[in-house]
Simulated scan of single mutants.
Amino acid sequence: MPWYPLSAKVFTSTTMRPVARAASGHKLLAEMLEKRPDARPVCADALYERLEPFAVGLPMLPGFLAKSPSPGRMYARMVGRVLSG
């Protein structure tokens, strides 16, 4: 499998314009590396939500992810739905 830099994957999405996606990625990275803790993303959930739009067109990870969900993943998904309301 060829290696692609992050910037190559950024331009494959049709949900955001490539320039806007790259700019928002650079801004998020700068916030994550900020020296002042109060200027960083407040929690892992907030960071996850901001990173999620970048996860497009990713290939399956052989041996780690299967096309059908595992029983543990299905259980975790249901628990997440129950806990989120």
Rank of each mutant, 00 (worst) to 15 (best):
P37K: 05
C43M: 03
E49M: 09
S24C: 13
Y48I: 09
L51C: 06
Y48D: 07
A30H: 10
E31N: 06
E31V: 00
E34N: 14
A44H: 07
A46D: 14
A39G: 07
F54C: 02
A46H: 11
E31Y: 01
P37R: 08
L28S: 08
G25V: 13
K35C: 07
E49D: 11
L29E: 00
K35A: 11
E31P: 01
L29Y: 03
L51R: 04
K35G: 08
L29C: 08
M32G: 05
S24R: 15
P53H: 01
A46M: 08
K35P: 06
E49Y: 08
K35S: 11
P53G: 02
C43G: 11
V42P: 04
R36F: 00
R40M: 01
L58P: 02
L58K: 12
L29H: 02
L33S: 08
A23I: 15
L51A: 07
H26E: 09
A46Q: 12
G57F: 05
Y48L: 12
A39M: 11
R36G: 04
K27D: 13
A55W: 01
G25W: 15
L58G: 08
E34V: 01
V42M: 06
K35L: 03
L47V: 07
A44G: 11
R50Q: 14
F54Y: 13
A39L: 10
L51F: 02
L29R: 08
H26T: 14
F54K: 03
D45M: 04
V42A: 13
K27L: 12
